[in-house]
Write a protein that binds this DNA or RNA. Structure first.
Lengths: 253, 253
DNA sequence: AAGTGGTCTAGACCACCAC
DNA sequence: TGGTGGTCTAGACCACTTT
């Protein structure tokens, strides 16, 4: 019980602080292996669970990554997708302004992985937004998007089932121009958008489906598309791997 | 060693799944106390660390909250701030469209807690954006914002030190209209904005400063303000308690 | 085959909170 | 004062990766 030697700080926090400092100082570089459980047990003379807790701290901050049977590695954030919320002003003055956060890849180079279309009752808030009856089924389109084979985004669209009945929107392949082109054809062209952004820790399903490293939150985008008459014609609920995305919005004062 | 009885699933995951199901089913409601370590040890006949790990799973998903000496409680997300990225179009058609995510409080009802102004070298990306020499000191303004006494936001502004020298921007109190009014007065009125949004787990400093419950990520907003001539005049780096915020952006097709 | 992280046990002492 | 969660120990077996 040499617990009174250190000034009230738990051992695992001291070990974690040491490792963090070493990573910050560049002693260990991204992708490199760092001391694992057995190493920490030896050098700090602690039990396995204590070493694990120190590593758990770093993992929860997204600094390291454990690979079963291989070791602990400094995490590297490489591919970043820049998602431009307002992308239509392509050739304006501001487009040349330097951005603080670099992003290698554009939103458009994603591939669709799987599509499902079905009719389900809409979630509470969605039904209110679409102005459909509370328990009535709506058209639900679920898609997953990949970047270089790695899943980075889940998207779920909700549309008024009566409105889109008989259109390609109820088919897996919506045809050229996608949902919005089809909505235009039936006289409900989206002309205005609202995006609501939140962030939280993923549940087990999201962690598995997006292949998330523990310690990675998800970013949620809920986009509502409005037609000319002000009617909400689509709600698109997106779940993003937050380590893969930078969202960008530009607007004038 | 009754490990082969269950089909490959770790005990702690099964316990966690049970608790999650109970919370989802409404057996335990937000703010209510749920079975703690000792209860789980007894009912599932497991060791303390196993029960803890089950609870750690729920905590990392932001579902529960541990209060030392008191017990484990279902987390409740109450106050949400709606931060409107583009708020100037106050009386347009879309303002009446129903939003999916409710938000009780507006961005403006925040109080400033502490302000510090100093000259420091700018971070790498910031210097490039502001177009200042790499190691040159810039004006750095740090502020913390409270909602009902609870910290919810850190904001750090970076400005060209030479540009703002002699203005109230270098003072803790920037006067009526704040930084942007002062920039206007010296002929660099911000007329265009870019906001870049990311999300990650907080470090220890952010967790303490924002009073974050474990399992809560932070949302990062990096706003760049541009003057008429296209010059970037301010970079504002914000760290938000993600459980307190919904970000909103509206724009036309 | 050796080493790694993942899971699990059966204990222990502590600081903190509610009663 | 008794119960709670937080920290810690000294073992153990397992699945997995690497060599």
């Amino acid at each position: 019980m040499n617990r009174r030697t250190v000034g009230r700080q738990p051992k695992y926090q001291r070990i974690a602080a040491d490792l963090k400092a070493a990573i910050a100082a560049g002693t260990y570089t991204p992708g490199q292996r760092i001391p694992g459980e057995n190493d920490l047990m030896a050098t700090y003379e602690v039990a396995r669970m204590t070493a694990r807790q120190a590593l758990a701290t770093l993992r929860s901050e997204g600094l390291i990554e454990a690979r079963k049977g291989a070791g602990i590695f400094v995490r590297q954030y490489e591919v970043v997708i820049r998602r431009r919320g307002v992308q239509r002003l392509s050739l304006n003055l501001w487009a040349q302004g330097k951005s603080v956060w670099s992003a290698d890849i554009d939103d458009r180079s994603l591939e669709v992985d799987s599509v499902s279309v079905m009719e389900e009752p809409a979630p509470k808030g969605v039904a209110a937004t679409l102005d459909t009856p509370a328990e009535a089924p709506v058209c639900v389109r679920r898609r997953r998007f990949l970047l270089d084979g790695r899943p980075v985004l889940f998207a779920t669209s909700y549309l008024d089932a009566e409105l889109v009945a008989g259109t390609a929107i109820t088919q897996p392949d919506t045809g050229p121009g996608g949902i919005y082109a089809r909505l235009d054809e039936i006289g409900h062209k989206p002309v205005h958008f609202r995006e609501e952004i939140r962030s939280r820790m993923p549940n087990a399903e999201e962690t598995a489906g997006l292949g998330l490293t523990p310690g990675t939150p998800v970013t949620l985008i809920c986009r509502t598309a409005f037609a000319e008459d002000g009617r909400a014609v689509e709600v698109n609920d997106m779940v993003l791997d937050s380590s893969a995305y930078v969202l960008e919005y530009e607007f004038d004062a």
